[in-house]
Design a protein around this nucleic acid. Structure first.
Length: 858
DNA sequence: CACTCCCGCCAATTA
DNA sequence: TAATTGGCGGGAGTG
């Protein structure tokens, strides 16, 4: 019977008949494959496209479960219909169905004919876009596979993407329920909202959207979610998905698909380049990014894009950048989604759940698979771009703002991703694996002191703030591997005008004074990283060590408080519930500061995170240091005195940990007055404007303080140190390997004795790499002694010359461009490949990823 | 050669 | 334990 059906079909769309790959099914003998001798040769498999082959397939498919037989029959009919419909869609493809293709073609179906997009079209043709609500259409994978003449694997690809958009839902093994597009708008709306939360914030700063050719321009809408919104997103229930849902499955293709769609929805231009999307996705998913990962992501994106294209949601385009033409996809689906939500919900039960799922999906997704890492961070929309951008631009060479913009946009995206991750992690941690978050008390190796109040209360409403669960933030403890710290090149550079410091290497963070008058008392819990998946590693690391480091370096008292950890955990957990709600000021950020400083205008949202240290570098001293920072029981008070230059943004740089997957956070120190205050208080959340940067970008940079700062960190009385201490980011860690500087912005006062301060403007120390951009006036000091306590203002971590082996590239001074660029932007994948030195971790890896152009500052 | 992305191995999950 | 799912990446097809 089947055969007959098949045969009928065949005639209709001979061409289209895909080559069926029955081979898998059973031993189909290579019977006659007239057509593709080659393959045949290779494999004994029969050629699919022949009717017989098809029959075989069908039979084989059917046999397994006769159960669906009837259904199949039904299905088949539709299929026939579908075929006809198929072709039309093909429009999207340049390819054009060459339906005209000769029969030869038929025989040897070209790749295009076997494309996933085409297959998807056929698949879709089988089902009505808007099925009657009354009738539920079930989809049998076996059937479909056999009917379409493909392996099931391919069907999974399609179904997974469709499922991410809720066009179908899995009801049982081998069974999917077709919902059609009724809920599509709702789903998209949800995704858009979610996307805005995640990515949209970033958008704020793209004022320049115009420039962006293809970047994401995001909407700045005020839509920024409030903490409240979160609940919506809440992934709280992974459940939503069908029973099986939680599995890793939620992890990849489905999630990736949703995120990919979100990018489009959030993008002003509605155009997303593949590489950017891939990077974003990678960031989310992976700690370590390497070229192969990138390639894999791209492959997956093609898969997804093909399906979305078939759905008529996107189409392929090319964006032309300076670098050249890049493949991209443009959203051609609906853009505005008025709230139809009602409808959505109304739909089938499965569908009902959908909305939730959709919202949560993203988060869930992440959460699902990865508990291994824990990161906590929350951040709001960032507005950093400008600052960042500027910096970048500051570079002498890069005149192209456009690019920078792009970078910014990319970064934004990345940041969003990071945020998402963090959230997820947080969630997870709270939910599932708290441990991951916090080291077990016993374990605590981390120097981190959980600040009881890790949380920062938000001070200023104006600034978009994030609230982090305190615990989370506080926890930073994880064993950091000293090695890691070493690995880094400590390059510290100060950038004139820019108040922030960057620690190139992994674990550093910077605080910059410069807060405005407001005294910010910050407790930066940021450090908390925990051992991620590498808990083990962390565990391994003897706490003592950490402490040592801390103590040793950190003059600051901060000691890893193991004890605290428990508390921290608790907090964390609690907080987790809290969520990382993002508080976003609805207003666009216009912090006065920003205004004041044109360049830096972007107010940044603060992102706090807790990273876990890289496992790899088990002992990340830095981490410790970070924690230590937090640790500092004291709250850090950073007073910003520089009223004068209120606006220069100051950032705290948090070293990216693996968990973060290479993101660096910069917290702006100087916010609008009072904007940031981190108090040791229990405030669960902290709102700080910050900028998040892809670590990669940072990696290459040795940023440092901006001299511009006139007023150093608030001189906290003894706190100065304390301040410093507060800042102290676990200096210990820093100290361990890399020399850190803390200095006021203007100058580095190297407390560190060894090296006298360097003149800012000089590029400097050989040791340091100053990015060209930075070059302006940067002062870098090398300190042998890791820490400089005295000045609260800036910490610099200098590279140690030899400390870690750097790859040549890593060594290179990064361009300013590099700074912002995402790895992908950089271009050569090749660079990525380098990652061999995993140990170097993020920083190194990042650097590798990124191509840093090597203009060495020398 | 770069871009696409098919194909199918094989691990993770489920039943 | 077998079957279902689906991550993943080699490497082929296409331009």
């Amino acid at each position: 019977e089947n055969i007959f059906d098949r045969s009928r079909m065949a005639p209709k769309t001979p061409i289209k008949n895909e080559p069926i790959d029955l081979s898998k099914q059973k031993g189909c003998t290579p019977e006659r494959n007239p057509i593709t001798p080659v393959k045949i040769i290779d494999r004994p498999q029969p050629d699919p496209w022949t009717p017989t082959a098809n029959l075989k397939m069908l039979v084989s498919a059917a046999s397994p479960d006769m159960r669906d037989r009837e259904k199949k029959k039904e299905l088949f009919r539709p299929i026939e219909n579908s075929e006809q419909s198929d072709t039309p869609d093909s429009l999207q493809y340049d390819i054009v169905d060459d339906t005209t293709v000769d029969e030869f073609e038929k025989q040897r179906p070209s790749r295009k004919q076997k494309s996933l997009g085409l297959l998807c079209q056929k698949f879709l043709a089988r089902y009505p876009n808007y099925p009657l609500s009354t009738e539920k259409t079930t989809i049998s994978l076996d059937e479909v596979a056999s009917v379409l003449g493909v392996e099931r694997r391919r069907i999974y690809d399609i179904v997974n993407v469709l499922e991410s958009l809720h066009l179908v839902s899995r009801v049982a093994k081998n069974q999917y329920c077709w919902h059609g597009r009724h809920n599509l708008s709702q789903t998209l709306k949800m995704l858009q909202e979610a996307g805005e939360l995640q990515y949209g914030e970033l958008m704020t700063f793209q004022h320049k959207e115009q420039d962006l050719e293809y970047k994401f321009g995001e909407r700045k809408k005020e839509t920024i979610p409030h903490s409240q919104d979160r609940p919506l997103l809440d992934f709280s229930e992974p459940d939503c998905s069908s029973a099986s849902a939680n599995s890793r499955k939620d992890k990849s293709l489905r999630i990736m698909s949703q995120k990919f769609v979100m990018l489009f929805l959030v993008s002003k231009t509605k155009i997303v380049t593949l590489d950017i999307a891939a990077k974003i996705l990678i960031e989310e998913t992976q700690d370590t990014v390497d070229y192969s990962k990138f390639k894999t992501k791209v492959r997956r994106l093609y898969d997804i894009a093909n399906v979305l294209t078939s759905l008529g949601l996107i189409k392929k385009v090319h964006v032309t950048e300076e670098r050249g033409r890049k493949p991209a996809f443009k959203w051609i689906g609906p853009v505005e989604f008025s709230g139809k939500t009602d409808e959505l919900r109304g739909h089938s039960p499965t569908s009902d759940s959908l909305p939730e799922r959709g919202s949560c999906a993203q988060y869930q997704i992440c959460a699902a698979g990865k508990q291994r890492f824990t990161r906590h961070a929350s951040f709001n929309g960032a507005q950093p771009c400008e600052g960042t951008r500027r910096k970048v631009s500051s570079e002498p060479s890069s005149p192209h703002q456009e690019r920078q913009d792009e970078y910014c946009s990319k970064m934004i995206n990345l940041a969003a991703v990071c945020r998402q991750k963090i959230e997820e992690d947080t969630r997870n941690s709270s939910i599932t694996s708290p441990f991951s978050l916090l080291p077990v008390p016993g374990d605590s190796d981390f120097c981190v002191n959980p600040l009881p109040q890790a949380v920062f209360p938000m001070v200023q409403a104006e600034v978009p703030s994030l609230s982090l669960p305190i615990g989370i933030s506080s926890q930073a403890p994880h064993p950091s591997t000293p090695a890691a710290s070493k690995t880094e090149n400590g390059k510290a550079t100060l950038v004139p005008n820019q108040p922030f410091l960057c620690f190139p290497s992994s674990s550093l963070f910077m605080l910059c004074g410069g807060l405005q008058e407001n005294n910010l008392s910050e407790t930066l819990p940021t450090a908390g990283d925990k051992g991620n998946r590498s808990d083990e590693a962390t565990a391994v690391v003897p706490p003592a060590v950490c402490q040592k480091r801390c103590s040793h370096k950190c003059t600051s008292p901060s000691s890893p408080a193991d004890d605290e950890e428990p508390a921290a955990k608790k907090q964390t957990i609690e907080q987790s519930d809290l969520p990382l709600s993002l508080v976003v000021p609805k207003k666009p950020f216009e912090s006065p500061k920003a205004e004041s400083t044109p360049g830096n205008a972007c107010p940044s949202a603060v992102h706090l995170e807790t990273y876990h240290l890289d496992l790899a570098s088990a002992a990340a001293p830095e981490a410790a240091s970070k924690e230590s920072l937090d640790c500092q029981e004291e709250e850090k008070h950073i007073s910003k005195e520089n009223a004068n230059q209120p606006f220069q943004p100051q950032y705290l740089y948090v070293q990216p940990t693996t968990g973060l997957s290479s993101f660096n956070f910069l917290f702006s120190a100087n916010q609008t007055p009072g904007a940031i205050s981190l108090s040791s208080n229990q405030l669960p959340s902290l709102s700080v404007p910050c900028v998040m940067m892809p670590s990669a970008a940072l990696a290459s940079f040795p940023l440092i303080c901006s001299p511009s700062f006139t007023s150093p960190v608030s001189p906290v009385p003894d706190g100065s140190f304390s301040a410093a201490a507060s800042m102290n980011f676990s200096m210990s860690s820093l100290a361990s390997t890399t020399p850190v500087f803390i200095s006021t912005t203007a100058m580095v006062t190297p407390k560190v004795s060894p090296a006298p301060s360097v003149d800012l403007q000089q590029p400097a120390h050989p040791a340091l790499h100053l990015s060209p951009v930075l070059t302006r006036s940067c002062s870098a000091v090398k300190l042998d002694s890791p820490m400089c306590v005295g000045h609260p203002v800036t910490l610099l971590k200098l590279q140690q010359p030899s400390s870690t082996p750097l790859t040549p590239k890593s060594i290179r001074p990064a361009h300013h461009e590099a700074f912002f660029k995402t790895p992908g932007s950089l271009g050569d994948p090749v660079a990525w490949k380098k990652n061999e030195g995993n140990q170097t971790r993020n920083a190194s890896s990042v650097q590798r990823r990124l191509e840093i152009s090597g203009t060495s500052p020398d």
